[in-house]
Nucleic acid binder design. Structure first.
Length: 701
RNA sequence: GGCGCGGUAGCUCAGGUGGUUAGAGCGUUGGAUUCAUAACCCAAAGGUCGGGGGUUCAACUCCCCCCCGCGCUACCA
């Protein structure tokens, strides 16, 4: 059933270089991909592992504005930060590239032209907001206005950060350009679209039929949801001055859509790797193995030969791009292979809440490394044992401490330490010879033989949590063996027997150094140094004859150290503090609107009315249908308050109502007026009522 | 509201195509032990597998309804 592949190309989601990345990103894509690749290398597979910074898109210039600098400065800053963190956490990319590099612009333009020349892109002209003072089309992010959903006057054109709704610029009330403060005008612009709907049949065949059983259910389910809903043409270009130029005449000011170019970054990174290797000019490449006689064109088989297994590791937010859009692009070119699997993880929550850099509720990679500079493997382990493989999972500092103290220290570190201390004590730090084997010895040796295969099978099935537990089981096996054979007791009577036991124990430790390498590479290195043991392939593991008797062990030190309660309490406090700081910073009181005249105000007819009836609206989560006695009449008003009030809570209540608002049909019912609400910072709505009851129809002025 | 993914021991999580006493790690309790970073090793307690129906000789596992969480999506002040 499973095909034998000649080579592997593994990608880890390109981190977006608009800010630091947190441990949720690590758990989603980076840690699993690194374990997978390290294992593949260890079993001798031909694998290339690429990643890099994603540096285009509107959010980059936006972040530049926030930090009062240039887009270039932003990407240089965060690319360097992210790359450094990945390195310190042991991510073993063969290439960590950047989408701002010329070779990537070239690759992306080639692929765009490939599709264009085949007539696979459609041109469409639409009306977009244009700032005629700055002479630019405004990206969604550069338009600000009143949110039609929550009345936040500072909503962006793509999203309202107050209520979280996804918006399009045309929905904004009173739109303004953030560049000049001008009111933007609508101007027609041409864009190139990829008609995704043309590939529905093919996607159904490729994903829904042929990958029904080998893709993870969470991934498969999301793809099915998208395909079943019906796909739409999607613009592959944008009006923006930051990004990859559209390689067509008359396309001034147009760039490729960031989600068009970003996944192509994997291809560019592979090209760049072999180019640098051939030219022997290493700039971005960090080859993790020997590439024999590398040629520039060697990237091709990795992307174009059907014998290559292409795997994309991503978080769940990236599923649609890696399973639907990018494969369509690859397929449409007719030149590229498709991913064999996209083992996306779900999200990792933090201390009971969703991780979010902007809300200050996260553990950023660089912050972890600053506080725990010598503990990259502890983080790797804590994340590995709790990866969100099938559902969202949760990271807590208490759990982090427990994993370190009760597992890494108490089981893994302790076993190794016991074997070393006993060898020093009884055999002058030399590996003792092995005598005849008892039944218990044979049992432990046969158990040892089983484990590497089990671990490997789990890794190949993308079950990294299970694989991690199996590695720990090997250390458990060692501890149990020592407990059962009790060499410290035998030392008085039968030193030869003690030698046999310790020989086997040290062989287990040597095996640990091999099988733990994909998971905890720094620990593996440290353990090898202690054992005076060279790095061996996975194929050697499972054997009890890895180390020769008579050889000296190196200097023993503790592999892990306990983490005290104070350290953990400090981290939890830090987290709460940063959340509080972010809340204060990001929740300014809504600024005053522009000045109006009394005449402007008096146009509005605002009155006090009484809610007579209220009922939920079928098929709507937010709407209540109200009958309001306005004093003038009794009218129907649709109000989006159902998430804040039940019908019972509002019936009979006096409310403030704008009565001369033009009627509008909402969910098929004509709404005659608008109930006014006070919205708190947290988004909660409150009724506006006179402090004492007044008669319906009382005017407000 | 629609669609997708979840709701399994105190905690974090496993449980192809339904089948003997539902699992792991941690935590708890008890025992054993002292080589080891009071660690290791053994054992036990602990779950009506979100709720309710149904199919079946048999359901955590299949079907229907409901409740809850998360994501996408629609309506909205």
């Amino acid at each position: 059933m499973s095909k034998e592949f000649k080579r592997y190309l593994v990608t880890a989601a390109l981190p977006y270089a608009n800010g630091p990345k947190h441990i949720g990103h690590l758990a989603g894509a980076y840690i699993p991909s690194d374990v997978y690749v390290r294992y593949l290398r260890s079993i001798g597979k031909d694998v290339v592992f690429v990643c890099g910074s994603d540096e285009h898109g509107t959010a980059i210039p936006n972040q530049a504005l926030k930090e009062n600098t240039t887009s270039r400065a932003i990407i240089d800053k965060y690319d360097a930060l992210i790359k450094e963190c990945f390195h310190r956490l042991g991510m073993s990319f063969d290439m960590y590239h950047r989408t701002s590099e010329p070779i990537h612009h070239q690759t992306s333009q080639e692929i765009f032209l490939n599709l264009f020349n085949k007539g696979l892109l459609t041109e469409e002209i639409s009306e977009q907001y244009y700032d005629d003072k700055a002479n630019v089309f405004l990206a969604d992010r550069y338009i600000i206005g009143t949110c039609p959903k929550c009345a936040n006057p500072n909503a962006y054109g793509d999203q309202c950060e107050r209520c979280g709704s996804t918006l399009s610029p045309r929905e904004l009330i009173n739109p303004k350009s953030t560049l000049t403060g001008n009111v933007p005008i609508l101007k027609s612009t041409k864009h190139w679209y990829l008609p995704l709907q043309n590939y529905e049949g093919w996607l159904t065949e490729w994903i829904l039929k042929s990958h029904k059983d080998d893709w993870k259910v969470n991934v498969y389910g999301q793809c099915k949801s998208w395909i079943d809903a019906g796909l739409q043409p999607r613009a592959m270009t944008r009006d923006l001055d930051w990004g990859i130029k559209v390689p067509l005449p008359d396309s001034e000011g147009k760039v490729l859509y960031v989600w068009f170019d970003a996944p192509i970054g994997y291809i560019s990174a592979t090209r760049a790797l072999f180019k640098e290797l051939e030219e022997n000019k290493i700039e971005f490449a960090t080859p993790q193995r020997e590439f024999k006689n590398p040629k520039s064109d060697d990237w091709k088989p990795y992307w174009q030969d059907a014998d290559t297994k292409l795997i994309h590791f991503v978080g769940k937010d990236n599923i649609v791009f890696h399973c639907i859009i990018f494969p369509i692009i690859l397929k449409a070119t007719g030149e590229y292979i498709l991913p064999e699997n996209v083992p996306a993880n779900e999200f990792m929550n933090l201390e009971g809440d969703k991780m979010s850099t902007s809300r200050g509720w996260s553990i950023e990679m660089h912050e972890y490394l600053a506080d725990f500079p010598d503990k990259p493997d502890v983080l790797r382990y804590a994340l590995l044992t709790n990866l969100p493989e099938t559902k969202d999972s949760e990271f807590t500092w208490k759990d982090f401490q427990a994993k370190n103290n009760n597992e890494l220290v108490a089981i893994f570190g302790n076993f190794v330490n016991r074997a070393f201390v006993l060898t020093q004590k009884y055999f002058d730090n030399k590996i003792p010879a092995r005598g005849s084997l008892s039944e218990i010895d044979q049992k432990v040796i046969s158990d040892l033989k089983e484990l590497p295969g089990k671990i490997g099978a789990s890794i190949q099935a993308y079950r990294f949590r299970e694989a991690t537990a199996q590695v720990m089981d090997l250390a458990r096996l060692g501890n149990k063996y020592l407990a059962e054979t009790e060499p410290w007791k035998l030392a008085k009577t039968d030193l030869e027997r003690v030698g046999t036991i310790l020989n086997i124990s040290l062989q287990i430790a040597a095996n640990l150094s091999i099988v733990v390498e994909p998971f905890l590479p720094f620990t593996a290195q440290k353990l090898r140094n202690m054992l005076n043991f060279q790095q061996l392939d996975w194929s050697k593991s499972g054997s009890a004859d890895l180390m020769e008797a008579g050889n000296s062990l190196g200097v023993a030190s503790l592999l892990f150290e306990k983490i005290e309660d104070e350290v953990i309490e400090k981290q939890v406090k830090k987290l709460l503090d940063s959340k509080k700081a972010m809340e204060l910073a990001s929740q300014p009181v809504t600024p005053a609107k522009t000045e109006i005249t009394f005449d402007d105000f008096s146009k509005m007819d605002i009155r006090v009315g009484t809610i007579l009836t209220a009922e939920r609206v079928e098929k709507s989560k937010k709407l209540l249908k109200l009958q309001v006695d306005t004093g003038i009449d009794k009218r129907t008003v649709m109000s989006g308050i159902a998430e804040h009030f039940s019908p019972d809570q509002v019936i009979g209540k006096q409310v403030t109502i704008l009565v001369n608002l033009a009627p509008r049909k909402i969910m098929g019912v004509e709404s005659q007026g608008m109930i006014l609400m006070a919205e708190d910072k947290d988004g909660k709505l409150r009724l506006l009522q006179p402090n004492e009851s007044v008669s319906p129809g009382s005017t407000i002025s």
